[in-house]
Design a protein around this nucleic acid. Structure first.
Lengths: 127, 127
DNA sequence: CCTACCTAGATAGCGAACCTACATAGGTTG
DNA sequence: CAACCTATGTAGGTTCGCTATCTAGGTAGG
């Protein structure tokens, strides 16, 4: 109860692949923050609850790719936190992949919801 | 060169995961057709060239799920073809997943391209 | 005082599914 | 007959989200 009317927040896991990294970069473009806060921000944004086993390997991949840098801050009223900073490379990747994602969603929505004119159905291939 | 202005047609493979099945169901909703024609139709729709190793296992999964049925037709001016028919289950799946995909794309586009008001950035969790 | 819970980060193994190749086979063309 | 297009299919590799589990600091309740 009390779930499907407001926000599903439970998307197929395959749909999150790839675009999840772009969303994390977008959160970091508002300023440095730490992993746990990124997870809650994306959950509030409608992506559903991110599991630790999903988020932290992803952040490590972003670090290895040079899109983020890490600054450790010792705990102030809680455990220590790793603050992630977006690099120039990360900004470029966000702009590039974010724009490409918009194009991709338009292509798929045209295919799925467009009229059959959008697709050249079964052309007479053998003439 | 000579292509990026019209259609990239070369999306990240992770983005195709999952939504590819919905696109195939959508093609079949215009009438029965065979695998190779589905591939060319989606390529012309802007999804890029589908490889045989991607398309045929996907069609088998759709058959196992009961979303399509298969009718073999011997070759008429070419090799034999397997014609795929959309079932009632496939129509329901297309409607359900297609609508969910639209919601998902809106959520992600709001996150990626929206103002920072769309995301409650780094709330003062400890206070 | 000790247990339970929340925050915060991390790892191991699993499974789904796209990828690159390769294999098979009918038909047409040079 | 070799090369190519059509048409379908399989094998192995890789990626990446998932579940489950672990460490560890802080706080609240019994």
């Amino acid at each position: 109860m009390s779930d499907e009317s407001t926000a599903p927040s439970d998307w197929p896991s395959e749909w999150l692949r790839g675009v999840l990294g772009v969303c994390v970069l977008r959160v970091l473009s508002d300023g440095p923050t730490y992993g746990y806060a990124i997870g809650t921000a994306l959950a509030d944004g409608g992506l559903g609850t991110l599991k630790g086993g999903t988020l932290y390997p992803l952040l490590k991949r972003l670090e290895d790719a040079g899109h983020v840098t890490i600054e450790w801050r010792a705990g102030e009223g809680g455990p220590g936190r790793k603050y992630y900073h977006l690099t120039r490379s990360g900004e470029d990747e966000l702009a590039r992949a974010g724009d490409q994602w918009t194009q991709f969603t338009e292509v798929t929505r045209t295919i799925i919801h467009g009229t059959r004119a959008a697709l050249p159905l079964t052309p007479e291939v053998q003439s």
